[in-house]
């Protein structure tokens, strides 16, 4: 039991505070990129739906790139490309930019699916009642289509939350990076990783359960 004794003397209350702060940073970067990415993604999804040929030729392949290249490569690439462009971004900024674009590429497909899920006759009926195009989008398509793809969107959001761990390669101290730092100091990888993993799990599991139940109850 020698190692675990030294662990308890090394891993003190301040380290929990350190991990907690890192967890808040994970939450902050995920929330920021998911909200920005969702707004952007809905716009892209709408453009893909309405843009027909032009969007299929320009926007779709561009978004496809972000889904076909590993996120970690995108992050390193952008982090090293920004200074070439004359931008001076810290790891947090670069992480938010790439995670936002990555989220929007995933949400665009979800959003397009949502718009397609709303029947054409329904929208025509709305328009013939004198509702304008934007009112139709706001009051008909958004509530009905949004409901249809909400579980899929939750899946994307949780995926981005988990993928935000990759921002650690740029040096941003989020939860997983913080656990790496603590492991280096305390030489107690197992317990610290369990704590970090438990945090992700505690965040992700209830939300995914909630979405699955919602999907089930709406399917009926």
């Amino acid at each position: 039991m020698e190692p675990s004794l030294s662990f308890f003397s090394d891993f003190n209350i301040n380290d929990f505070w350190f991990l907690g702060q890192a967890a808040v940073r994970t939450l902050w970067i995920s929330l920021l990129s998911i909200s920005l990415g969702t707004v952007l993604g809905i716009f892209f999804g709408w453009a893909l739906y309405e843009g027909k040929l032009a969007a299929t030729l320009t926007l779709a392949p561009l978004l496809d790139v972000f889904r076909s290249v590993p996120l970690i490569i995108q992050l390193v690439l952008f982090y090293n490309f920004a200074p070439i462009m004359g931008l001076n971004l810290d790891p947090f900024g670069s992480g938010v930019v790439i995670l936002t674009i990555y989220t929007s590429a995933l949400v665009a497909n979800v959003a397009r699916g949502g718009i397609e899920a709303v029947g054409k006759p329904l929208r025509n009926a709305a328009r013939s009642l004198g509702i304008s195009y934007w009112q139709d989008l706001r009051y008909i398509v958004f509530p009905i289509g949004g409901r249809a793809v909400f579980p899929a969107w939750v899946g994307v959001a949780l995926g981005v939350m988990k993928d935000s761990a990759l921002v650690s390669v740029l040096g941003y101290v989020e939860l997983l990076k913080a656990s790496q730092i603590l492991i280096t100091r305390t030489q107690e990888p197992f317990l610290i990783l369990i704590v970090a993993g438990a945090f992700y799990f505690a965040l992700s599991y209830p939300i995914s359960r909630y979405a699955a139940n919602l999907e089930k109850s709406w399917a009926q």
């Binding site: 990783l193 992700y200 992700s204």
Partner: peptide, 8 residues
């Protein structure tokens, strides 16, 4: 497997 990051 589904609820923790792959990196973790």
């Amino acid at each position: 497997a589904r609820n923790t990051p792959a990196l973790f």
